[in-house]
Design a protein around this nucleic acid. Structure first.
Length: 432
RNA sequence: UCCCCGAUAGCUCAAUGGUAGAGCACCCGGCUGUUAACCGGGUUGUUGUAGGUUCGAGCCCUACUCGGGGAGCCA
């Protein structure tokens, strides 16, 4: 009985006759010899097909099979230093399920517009394969991290009756007799869950109808939002840096091959160890004031170029805390030592990826929170359930939101977040 | 919403206002060690759309469409 083996497990089967099932990644023929690179989703293996070792129909058909033809090949697996990956299959039998002509994405160069138009096929490329496997490892690491620390995963709704923060533009959808919005954050719901379960996190898709056109923005992206009862800004900062260090360590352990495909500088990732550098807003403002290229004015939020200037000073993510209350959301608690500031933190990823985490201690006082809602002219009635959390057993609590695609882009060292999600949604792209 | 850039063969790109080209892909032939193989031969066009200037427009002008980069906003 010949065993079907995945490419990633081949090394356990050297010397055996094995069968690989996959797609033709590349074929180069040399007279009476074909080299077929076959990918099966777990990796790529070279299969050597000598004319004299296989049925003549198979040899002939393989010579005309184009890229991405679906094939199964069987033969003796042996180690060979000449083969990419170090193993190759000396084929004796095989089947071409479908012989393909004219696959749109060749191993040559393509423009980004063309690739995005063919994203459903672009997924098969080596580079996308590597990125999506890193993304998977990041997601798994996140769930492990929180599970090990006693957090409970609580899903927040996608349909919401109103804006969570009242700032971003939301997507409207008809909802029977009323209008609903696609969520821009699960945070308020996470706060409710934290009062019920202690330590929780939500992890799901998030939507912003902002007409952003940058390499850091998507209209649909995944956000992780942990929330802890009886917690402070300090607790959240510690959690954030420990989590990021854990994620990076897990990716380094489980996705070395993929990082190699992406030509990622591993030494940069190996430096990502807690604790991370911390700057107060005031300290960061001082740095920017002395920087010739910055147009920053004290009191403003940092622009994207400012964030790059700040993050370039460090070899790991930097935590910037205690921003002026004017530039931050209504639910953030004021710093008792300086009421002009919020107890909040942004984590800026290295290498220009921008803000990957935004978090804060939440305002837990009913009257202060109500005042904030009025100041921001938010619809008070819509927040009654949220205010209930301050009416019935209010406690200090804190949490943050992590942008998954920005984190993946940062770890992979890729330019644009649209490559860090299988099917990116941007202002001018809804397909495929 | 604002600023900048782009659109020519299936793909990536070239072409001083004067005959629309190359590489790759694809097809045929050759090759028992290729790594995006190589060698020889062959096929491939409503130059994004609509107007305008000109003897003549891929090239200049206007509008539009589609897309890309950035700002703002944010993760």
């Amino acid at each position: 009985m010949i065993e079907v083996v995945t490419v990633e497990r081949l090394k356990q089967h050297v010397g055996q006759t094995v069968c690989v099932r996959g797609w033709l990644y590349n074929l180069s023929s040399k007279g009476k010899l074909h080299f077929a690179q076959v990918r099966d989703g777990t990796g790529i293996v070279q299969c050597v097909v000598f004319k004299n070792n296989v049925p003549p129909e198979l040899f002939e058909a393989l010579g005309h099979a184009g890229q991405e033809s679906s094939i199964t090949l069987t033969g003796l697996l042996r180690e060979d230093p000449r083969a990419p990956g170090g193993f190759e299959i000396d084929v004796t039998q095989g089947e071409i399920l479908q012989s393909v002509q004219g696959y749109p994405i060749t191993p040559k160069e393509h423009g980004i517009e063309y690739l995005l138009e063919h994203r459903h096929l672009w997924l098969r490329s080596r580079r996308t394969w590597a990125i999506l496997r890193v993304r998977d490892a990041v997601i798994t690491a996140i769930r492990r991290f929180f599970d090990e620390r006693g957090f409970v995963c609580v899903d927040s709704p996608i349909f919401t009756p109103n804006a969570c923060e009242g700032t971003s533009t939301l997507f409207e959808v008809p909802y029977f007799e009323q209008t609903a919005y696609l969520t821009q954050s699960g945070q308020l719901y996470a706060e409710a869950a934290a009062m019920a379960l202690g330590k929780v996190y939500t992890f799901g898709p998030t939507f912003r109808a902002e007409k952003s056109k940058t390499r850091r923005h998507l209209t649909e992206f995944w956000m992780l939002e942990p929330e802890m009862a009886y917690a402070t800004l300090e607790d959240v900062m510690k959690l954030a840096e420990e989590m990021l260090a854990y994620i990076v360590a897990q990716v380094l352990e489980r996705r070395r091959v993929e990082l190699g495909v992406l030509e990622r500088d591993l030494s940069k990732l190996e430096r990502i160890q807690a604790p991370f550098p911390r700057l107060s807003y005031d300290e960061a403002a001082k740095i920017l004031a002395e920087h010739p290229e910055s147009t920053f004015k004290y009191g403003d939020d940092f622009g994207a170029p400012d964030e790059t200037i700040l993050s370039n000073r460090f070899d790991r993510p930097v935590l910037v805390h205690r921003y002026p209350k004017e530039v931050k959301a209504f639910y953030m608690k004021r710093d008792p030592e300086d009421p002009s500031k919020c107890l909040c933190v942004d984590v800026l990823g290295s290498e220009g990826v921008g803000e990957i985490i935004g978090g804060s201690q939440r305002e837990d006082d009913l009257e202060l929170l109500l005042g904030r809602i009025r100041e921001h002219q938010l619809p008070e009635s819509a927040f009654q359930w949220y205010l209930d959390l301050r009416r019935y057993g209010s406690v200090p609590h804190a949490g943050f939101g992590l942008g998954l695609e920005r984190t993946v882009a940062w770890i992979c060292g890729i330019e644009h977040v649209r490559e860090a999600i299988p099917f990116p949604r941007t202002i001018y792209r809804l397909t495929p």
